[in-house]
Design a protein around this nucleic acid. Structure first.
Length: 463
RNA sequence: GGCGGCGUGGCCGAGUGGUUAGGCAGGGGCCUGCAAAGCCCCGUACUCCGGUUCGAAUCCGGACGCCGCCUCCA
């Protein structure tokens, strides 16, 4: 039984699935108008972990996450870069998937593009106009939120208090400042699609409702995204579904934001670090570990210091993997618990970790338990209980793998010159010729190796 | 102004009515020819003021500070 916080109820409750054993989840994806930043990294990591965990527990997960490929920002970028919106989209979408691969975020089962769903959006908007739920003004078509029962459900506020808080009205013709654009009339030089209510392009809130319902069907299980999308984006998605008489998401879940210097990281504040830059300056697994060590709903401060902290913790995990010769897990294939062996203390560990992860994905607790288990396995091995330690180590590896974190004990390619130096050093050490052994060690260090002595002789690895 | 959330040891970051979260850093020890790496051990913290309680960092009230959303944002 999986329990998860629901953003509408404001409490943790059992994940009540439409079809038992199957999870349909929709995660609001990026607008590809710029380099993906750490905030995007967090939401993709958080929901990747959720997906992996559900799968690990034997649920059949259908994971859909969109790519927004038409939007004001994309148009602005195409003007700025003096090339077509299609080229802008191609560039930044490629960078997006590259960043996802580097983070070890598994590809969604489906990654729909907004522009592939324009006919469906037009159909929906036409129906709204027919029912007078939407209205046309000079620059486009808007949804009349007063026609939507329970508008404000996600915001946790009634329509009236939202209206009071609404900021400067951009379009005075709107009936209410809260009414939002379903369709934006085409301007010269902008991409547009023909529609009975005028050529133009879809508003942001319309694509997600069409794609989520289209691919997952009515009453799908889980709608996820960053906390900053809760209102108005998700509110407006839901408003359209309700207005169309469709049953929308059974559960809503939102991840906390990435903070930098106490402020939210965002495109609009311009205080972002790109994932591309992160991958260049650190082991991408460090960010996953950092994300796992904070609860998904909490804000997390990401700095070079906290990333470096995670990298050092990772070094310890890697050393553990080397000691127990653990297989590298957590690739593109999602792990499933039933395919692994759980023996002795490993089985007990799995029970404990599963209990906290099933309960609102308490990854920080799970990670703490895994570190405790790591120390226990080391102690057992030191005491000579190789079998017990190995069982525990395998479980630890499998559970980190379940969360998408690979403890890789990868072998570095050793060139013949280095291999020769290793052989000669072992010979020198055998002959207790310490001066020669130290000289050979220095040579290896100069070649960029970390040199370690072991019971089987000199070991070298890359930093 | 409305709604939501937060304030924990040097840093990051969990959790909880009374037993050490965990990681990193730091200290000690083991191993080692010396190193390196690794392993083991060590921290008694919870913004402030009241209250409830045998007992609160954990519950309640208040204060102060901070953050998010109400505008595009993951």
């Amino acid at each position: 039984m999986i329990r998860l916080y629901d953003s509408v109820d404001g409490e943790v409750r059992e994940l009540n699935l439409r079809d038992p054993g199957r999870v349909s989840m929709y995660v609001c994806g990026p607008t590809v108008d710029n380099l993906p930043h750490l905030g995007h990294g967090r939401f993709t990591l958080v929901w990747d972990v959720a997906r992996r965990w559900f799968t690990f527990r034997g649920l059949d997960v259908n994971y859909v996450s969109n790519i927004t490929d038409i939007d004001d920002k994309i148009i602005a970028r195409s003007l700025q870069e003096d090339r077509s919106t299609a080229e802008v989209v191609a560039t930044y979408e490629a960078l997006w998937w590259e960043a996802m691969d580097q983070l070890g975020v598994a590809r969604p089962d489906e990654a729909p593009h907004a522009t592939d769903y324009v006919p469906e959006m037009i159909e929906l908007i036409s129906a709204f106009l027919e029912d007078d739920i939407a209205y046309t003004i000079s620059d486009g078509v808007y949804l009349d939120v007063s026609r939507v029962p329970d508008y404000g459900l996600l915001a946790g506020q009634p329509l009236e208090s939202l209206r009071v808080g609404a900021r400067v009205e951009a379009v005075e013709e709107k009936r209410s400042p809260l009414d939002f654009a379903l369709w934006k009339n085409a301007k010269a030089g902008e991409p547009s699609w023909p529609a009975p209510f005028g050529d133009g392009r879809p508003g942001w809130h319309t694509e997600c409702v069409v794609m989520s319902l289209g691919l997952l069907g009515d009453d799908f299980d889980l709608h996820c995204g960053g906390l900053d999308l809760k209102f108005p984006h998700h509110e407006n998605e839901r408003a359209q579904a309700v207005a169309a008489g469709r049953v929308f998401a059974r559960h809503w879940s939102h991840n906390g934001l990435v903070m930098v210097g106490g402020e939210k990281m965002s495109k609009s504040l311009g205080n972002f670090t790109s994932l591309t830059n992160l991958a260049e300056t650190s082991d991408p697994r460090a960010y996953r570990l950092l994300v796992l060590r904070s609860h998904y709903r909490s804000p997390v401060e990401v700095t070079t210091a906290t990333i470096a902290d995670a990298e050092r913790a990772l070094a310890r995990l890697d050393a553990f993997a080397r000691r127990f010769e653990l297989a590298a897990l957590a690739g593109d294939t999602l792990e499933v618990a039933s395919r692994r062996e759980w023996i002795g203390e490993g089985a007990a560990l799995y029970e404990e970790v599963a209990a906290v992860l099933d309960d609102d994905l308490k990854t920080p607790l799970a990670v703490a338990m895994l570190f405790d288990a790591l120390a226990a396995a080391n102690t057992q091995a030191d005491a000579g209980d190789a079998t017990g330690a190995q069982n525990l180590a395998k479980a630890i590896n499998a559970l980190f793998g379940a969360l998408g974190l690979s403890l890789h004990s990868k072998e570095d390619d050793v060139d013949s010159r280095s291999a020769d130096l290793v052989t000669r050093r072992d010979a020198a050490r055998g002959a207790k010729d310490w001066a020669q052994a130290d000289r050979l060690r220095n040579e290896l260090v100069t070649l960029g190796w970390i040199v370690e002595d072991s019971s089987t002789g000199t070991l070298i690895r890359r930093p």
